[in-house]
Simulated assay, not measured.
Amino acid sequence: MLPNHLKIALVYDSRSTYRELGYSEIDCADLGLDEETPVISAALEHHDHHVTLIPGIKPLVQQLAIGRATEWDLVFNVSEGFYGTARESQVPGLLEAYQIPYTFSDAATSALCLEKGRTKLLFSSILY
Results as ranks from 00 to 15, higher is better:
M1I: 00
N4P: 11
N4R: 15
L6C: 08
K7W: 09
I8H: 03
I8V: 13
A9S: 14
L10E: 08
L10R: 13
L10M: 02
D13M: 10
D13K: 06
S14V: 04
S14W: 06
S16M: 10
Y18F: 06
E20C: 06
E20K: 10
L21F: 08
G22N: 03
Y23D: 14
Y23N: 13
Y23Q: 03
S24C: 07
E25K: 14
E25Y: 01
E25G: 14
E25W: 12
I26A: 11
D27T: 02
C28W: 03
A29D: 12
L31N: 08
L33G: 13
E35A: 09
E36I: 14
T37G: 07
T37M: 12
P38N: 08
V39K: 10
I40E: 01
S41E: 15
S41Q: 15
A42W: 11
A43H: 10
H46F: 05
H46S: 11
V51H: 10
T52E: 15
T52S: 15
I54R: 02
P55K: 05
I57W: 04
I57V: 11
I57E: 13
K58G: 00
P59R: 00
V61F: 00
Q63G: 05
L64Y: 06
L64I: 07
I66H: 12
R68M: 08
A69H: 15
A69I: 01
T70E: 14
T70Q: 10
E71F: 03
W72L: 05
W72E: 08
L74I: 14
L74G: 01
V75H: 12
F76D: 05
N77E: 04
N77D: 12
S79G: 14
S79K: 04
E80Q: 13
Y83T: 14
G84Q: 12
T85H: 09
T85Q: 09
A86D: 11
R87D: 01
S89H: 08
V91E: 01
V91A: 06
G93C: 13
A97H: 15
A97F: 15
Y98W: 11
Y98S: 10
Q99V: 00
Q99F: 10
Q99N: 15
I100C: 14
P101G: 14
T103Q: 06
T103I: 03
F104I: 07
F104E: 14
A107I: 09
A108Y: 06
T109P: 09
T109F: 04
A111C: 02
C113A: 03
L114M: 13
L114R: 12
E115S: 07
K116G: 03
G117K: 03
R118Y: 05
L121R: 01
L121S: 00
F123W: 01
F123K: 01
F123I: 02
F123L: 02
I126F: 01
I126S: 02
I126P: 04
I126E: 00
Y128C: 04
